[in-house]
Design a protein around this nucleic acid. Sequence first.
DNA 1: TAGTGGTCTAGACCACTCC
DNA 2: GAGTGGTCTAGACCACTAG
Lengths: 253, 253
Amino acid sequence: MGTTQVEAVPEPKYWHLRTVLSEALDSEFSVGEILPNERELAARFGVARATLRQALEQLELEGRLQRRRGVGTTVAPPRVGVSVGTEQHLWPGAPGDAWQPSDCTLAAPPAAVADALGTGRDEAVHTVRRSRRTHGRPVAAELLYVPASSVPDLSAIEAPSGPARARAVLRELQRRQLQRQESAVELGSAHAEDAKVLDRLPGSPVLVVTTRYVAGDRTAALSVATYRADTCRLTFGDAGGVQIHHDPPSRAC
Amino acid sequence: MGTTQVEAVPEPKYWHLRTVLSEALDSEFSVGEILPNERELAARFGVARATLRQALEQLELEGRLQRRRGVGTTVAPPRVGVSVGTEQHLWPGAPGDAWQPSDCTLAAPPAAVADALGTGRDEAVHTVRRSRRTHGRPVAAELLYVPASSVPDLSAIEAPSGPARARAVLRELQRRQLQRQESAVELGSAHAEDAKVLDRLPGSPVLVVTTRYVAGDRTAALSVATYRADTCRLTFGDAGGVQIHHDPPSRAC
DNA sequence: TAGTGGTCTAGACCACTCC
DNA sequence: GAGTGGTCTAGACCACTAG
């Protein structure tokens, strides 16, 4: 027939919409600007609100938009690079690290953590809570598990819990020789507690960084840190500068 | 009044459902097993299919489930750890690296890449496509940008494009001294091409790893690799062993 | 109190896989 | 062709923010 190739695999509407909106964001909006509300946008593009929302979700996932209930949808600033692994390995809590200890308890950790630490499943470990902010915004929440054997000289008299205790545990950690550290990054979703600290809704995507600190050939500490996936770019080996990743040219539709 | 605390902040249904399903996966299903279909599950839990799907989406994001159109929903195996950054820095294509070159072209890169490379926006660079598989499954697709100046001795006569050309570019790269490399990890969504290679739908979540290879104080190559976020755990400093991250105990509801 | 995004419903049809 | 997950609709109501 005379018709030219007709879009063999039709793009879903929400995907097309994502592309259109993405281009509009590049050319017609500036950071911080408020978009029209969802009902308005849906009407303007002639789609159901649910479909529009699917497109917005994608863009939020990619860090292009920020949505806040009761407020509106705004254009997000570029992701901030947060340094996660540096060349020289340091204990958590070393001078100059970016974390703020907020609490410390002594309790049996989740089974998976106990296994990774090589402690018994009912053995109590110090659990330090810390959080991290950048440009005044919360970017990460951490649980740091430190077996009692890693901080043998920790005074039992000092504050039994709370921030002071957390600092004491971190202080004691510095006295040991750090052999090496290993990290892993994976995608997760924020649980209620993390979500609260990160100022997001539960279920929002986070990058989970698990770090094993090795000393004396044993796992001396284990950190599980969750970073907001929408606003963060995790840098290893200090790559603060690299700033790629806006879509390469996509086919028209 | 006499009523006990009534769930001050009611959990969304889909979130509750996620928790229930997650626990069921732990206790009643084994890897690879097929779940009942969505209509069935929705009916069983007394919710609309869309709500159930929201819960499944979460679990898929967390790497617990795998859904395939026309087939069904299966219990996913644990994420595979893929080594991304090692202690000793090596050029891409060094002996033993996990990537399979598939193509190479010479063209002007996206503007953002040109800027990061410090080349002119219209200057052509070698663009090597590579892919990476683990246990027979595709896990990542990469675009590697190599400015002509980084491979000065590259013979113009050899295959002008295709896998042979890609290997030639990588081979030439090895001759230079690698100073250091810097990586960044962020969340993205798969474009059509990547989605195809990764055997996923467009828009599915990916971990984008941007690596800058520095030689002679200049960016000698730039790699943009997209990993399937559902099946991969990226390891730095070789942390193959760490395997945490199943939800900590969550509050009942 | 008005306006926003977040949740949820009950349907419909489509694209894909496998028999 | 039967059965699966993927897309889409047109509504409703809720939770939150801010004037």
